[in-house]
């Protein structure tokens, strides 16, 4: 229950949150509700708290209200009830410091990548005109689009479009990035690059709020997560706390299972299980490399050693029900 922000930043060596509004959450919503005309409740009494400096995964099956929540945060959709603040500021005042990708890319097909970004930069009243070209070039560089900067958007591939949308979110100095399914349509390299980019951005101290239904992705790049189901928040917390019921395990592949089990026992590891050719146990707080050293010292033939982190998928499926069927 202590320092959430510190914990959040730790994996990427994040800088402490900026001086202004330090200690605030990047996003706070209280009872946020959206009922669309026609009675569809897309988001129901959402209490979200995104710590500064975190990489926050916003999970949920299709139609669970992720995009609608993001639209409300960006002031595109008026909530039916509830309040929200972004970077400690009410409503839309923080938006110049927020980069956003909402429900896929959208650009002017007859303009080049550069011209498109200049257009959106011009729309931001706080963006200095004098640095616009430099910032646009940097943003394009960052997403690996420099070579296609002069190409018309019409001729961009799906992945290039997605990258351009991410570049648009990186046009200024951002304290918060809101990315709605940023890896949609990207090839495996692109997906990895986006993940690396998110980590890099987070390392600068920027809070990243990323919606996704790809659990592995969230698990790999997020420090925190919230899980939605048909408009309702079913869980939020650090990744560790969400999958807290399931301990991290270590798996040793070896023909000498008995010896290996004995060595693990000397470390005091709980729940040691021997199977054909491998031994697994709860890792607890132990360093896997020390276990490996001890095994080798004892003459155990180690063919492989793996740390098995608990999967978010089990938690997710447990909380959101059967598979990924669309509810309501």
């Amino acid at each position: 229950m202590t320092t959430v922000t510190q914990e959040a930043g730790a994996p990427f060596g994040a800088a402490p949150p900026p001086a202004d509004g330090a200690g605030e959450s990047a996003i706070v919503t209280e009872g946020l509700t959206k009922r669309f005309r026609g009675g569809q409740v897309a988001v129901n009494a959402l209490d979200l708290a995104v710590p500064r400096g975190s990489v926050f995964g916003f999970l949920g099956p299709n139609g669970s209200g992720k995009t609608t929540t993001i639209r409300m945060l960006l002031g595109l959709v008026t909530p039916t009830a509830g309040t929200h603040s972004v970077l400690g500021l009410p409503a839309t005042q923080a938006l110049p410091r927020v980069g956003a990708l909402v429900e896929g890319p959208a650009f002017y097909p007859y303009l080049s990548g550069t011209a498109n970004l200049l257009r959106f930069d011009a729309a931001d009243p706080t963006a200095p005109r004098t640095t616009a070209r430099r910032r646009v070039a940097e943003a394009l560089e960052r997403v690996g689009l420099s070579a296609a900067a002069g190409k018309r958007y019409r001729n961009y591939s799906l992945g290039m479009r997605q990258r351009l949308a991410i570049a648009a979110a990186l046009l200024g100095p951002r304290e918060l990035l809101i990315l709605d399914e940023p890896t949609n349509g990207l090839d495996p390299q692109g997906t990895r690059e986006v993940r690396a980019l998110v980590k890099e951005i987070a390392a600068d101290g920027t809070t990243v709020f990323v919606s996704s239904h790809l659990l592995a992705e969230v698990e790999q790049m997020c420090t925190h997560a919230a899980i939605m189901r048909t408009g309702t928040l079913v869980a939020q917390g650090t990744i560790a706390s969400l999958s807290g019921g399931l301990a991290t395990r270590v798996r040793i592949e070896t023909p000498d299972t008995a010896d290996a089990a004995r060595v693990l026992g000397t470390f005091g590891l709980a729940d040691v299980r021997s199977e054909a050719g491998q031994v697994t146990a709860e890792l607890g707080g132990h360093a896997p490399e020390r276990i490996n050293a001890a095994l080798v010292e004892e003459g155990v033939a180690v063919r492989g050693l793996a740390v098995l982190r608990p999967s978010l998928e089990d938690v997710f499926v447990g909380l959101t029900g059967e598979g990924f069927d669309v509810d309501g």
């Binding site: 922000t5 706070v28 979200l48 708290a49 917390g237 706390s241």
Partner: peptide
Amino acid sequence: MSTVDTSTSPGAGSGVRAGEARRTP
């Protein structure tokens, strides 16, 4: 550092430990 976090977001952070009941806001 996280005082506001903890008061506004009991669900966030390390609050939801295994076996520990989730707190109400």
